[in-house]
Write a protein that binds this DNA or RNA. Structure first.
Lengths: 336, 336
DNA sequence: GTGAAAGCGCTAACAC
DNA sequence: GTGTTAGCGCTTTCAC
């Protein structure tokens, strides 16, 4: 049906080897021959079949990015960062979303196992450390945004503990003394580390950490409303809330509005990630910026280097990139 | 390095043909043989190389979804719809974003040309009708969300003209008589069609359409603010604004807030798409819902059918799925 | 029920 | 500078 390299060779009156050379810009091919080949390609509308090429070369130059959910524009920003680095270096980036379903994740990981892609970047995973360590021996895998405890796999993240500490410190600077925490289950390393940072800041500056000010459920949007309901039901509700994601912060803000609270005055809310929605919201949302572009760039740079390296020489390090606290309208000085 | 089907055959003491049969669950293989093969697979940690398989079978069972931008969570919802239909039918879905750059789009389309994927769904494209028609003869292509005028390519969209008409009709029902339109350049078929619907509603119910109430720029977020600035500079500003996207509507709402206007009272704003942000915003955003799941499901169903069909029997039809106007807090009765 | 062998489209020795 | 040819890993006809 569609033309092959052989057809091109016949059409040009040359051998497939020469056609292949032209296709790959290798040296040792006369101008004349190249011209003939290009004409034949044009005439036949030929496009090389990469299945053949990839099979032969044992590489695809494609990297797969797996996201737990596609709702977060945050993830797509990282993908953009990955792409901007990888594309000029000859790698195509494709992505897929597992909807936080481990079954789908496994299925998509098959693209790695069956050699459809050269490597995978996981922006969150349901694999445990042991499995990841085993897979990492045979395949090129990297974690980004969300690490896995004890996994000796290339990982690039922000320093979640320190970032949360910095964020909560800002709230304390604004005069807040009762600060709530909205987190996901501790099976998420990032949520867990952020909780540690929150607790360290409270311990260091206020001297005490109260269990009742921590609401732990999941990253789901709806949890934000439930968290605020819970907090407002306390004898002494918090005057500020630190959330492990912007989405949760936005849910809290929405709920606060429904309860008649003025966000930034009656209650301060801080998120995490700096998704684009933070600037679109009314009020705008204070948050901790994760440098998405940088995260993507760093992780794919190291992954590509691993792909090119011999098995023994792989970089399975744990790297952090700098974060930044951004204050907007959703946080303010504590009400006297 | 990694095991091949030959290694498995040797290990099992059988031929590669038998191993292949086991791999593909074909009939005519004894229990005993299957057992041996599975043991060998287990022992060697074998995973079939799909480059070989796909080359041989001349199909990959992968469909590529190309998005113009990854910022819209809207697109990812469509991908989810596509995936939910395709996955159970043996197709993997991968996606890539061109950042509205035709150069990147072309590069990504290479995955179609070089047989890395069986088909492509374009959620917006910079290709013109002529090119699409030509490509569509050789390859399996579908358009979703955003059609291309005169393209005889499988297309699944909402009826943009009618949807805009319905939305504007609602604004008129709320008493609005001066209604602004914020659109993208008419090179976008959807924006163009929505403008037609806006004009039809105005013509039909109010008798006149005023050029000065149409602000046409692009889908970029920043255009929303400029549009409102423009409108408020008019001698008689509109009391309601219909935007061709929710993102633009949110930008308008944000700007209105900055100008001290109360959205839903002083000015009504209607968007288009029903992205998840509409419900998160304060105020919540009235909009036209595009049934993302349905769009994705329908387009991939027809595309898969085309992939399986002979060249002549392809469905290049134009299909619409039903839309729905959703009124929320950003629209209200006109202020007396 | 099983195996031998051809060949999918391509690249890369190797020979000339 | 060009051509011949062996295979990359797999499926599938055709014998048996």
């Amino acid at each position: 049906m569609s033309a092959t390299i052989k057809d091109v060779a016949n059409e040009a009156g040359l051998s497939v080897a020469t056609v292949s050379r032209v296709l790959n810009n290798s040296a040792n091919v006369s101008e004349e021959a190249a011209e003939k080949v290009n004409q034949a390609i044009e005439k036949l509308g030929y496009s090389p079949n990469f299945l053949g090429r990839n099979l032969r070369k044992r590489e695809t130059n494609v990297i797969l990015v797996l996201m737990p959910t596609s709702e977060h524009s945050f993830y797509m920003k990282i993908v953009a960062g990955i792409q901007s680095f990888a594309q000029p270096r000859g790698y195509d980036i494709i992505c897929a979303s597992s909807n936080s379903t481990s079954e789908i994740e496994v299925r998509q990981m098959n693209m790695l196992f069956n050699r459809t892609v050269d490597g995978v970047i996981l922006l969150g995973t349901s694999y445990d450390a042991e499995t990841l360590n085993k897979l990492s021996k045979t395949y090129n895998i990297a974690l980004c945004c969300e690490g896995v405890e004890n996994a000796e796999v290339l990982t690039v993240v922000v320093d979640d503990e320190q970032a949360a500490y910095d964020a909560v410190k800002e709230l304390i600077r604004l005069g807040h003394r009762r600060i709530g925490f909205v987190g996901a289950n501790d099976s998420s390393a990032s949520s867990c580390n952020r909780r540690q940072g929150y607790m360290r800041a409270l311990g260091e500056f206020l001297g005490e950490v109260s269990e009742e000010l921590m609401y732990i459920e999941s990253f789901e949007y709806d949890c934000g409303a439930r968290a605020l309901d819970y907090f407002m039901g306390l004898d002494e509700p918090p005057t500020a809330v630190f959330c492990v994601s912007d989405l949760l912060a936005i849910a809290v803000i929405h709920k606060a509005h429904d309860l008649g609270l003025k966000v930034g005055e009656d209650i301060s809310v801080m998120g995490f990630d700096n998704i684009s929605m933070c600037e679109m919201m009314l009020p705008t949302v204070s948050t901790v910026e994760q440098p998405c572009g940088k995260l993507g760039e760093v992780v794919v740079r190291k992954l590509i280097s691993n792909i090119g390296a011999s098995t023994g020489a792989k970089d399975n390090g744990y790297y952090t990139v700098p974060h930044r606290v951004i204050l907007r309208d959703s946080t303010g000085y504590v009400k006297k």
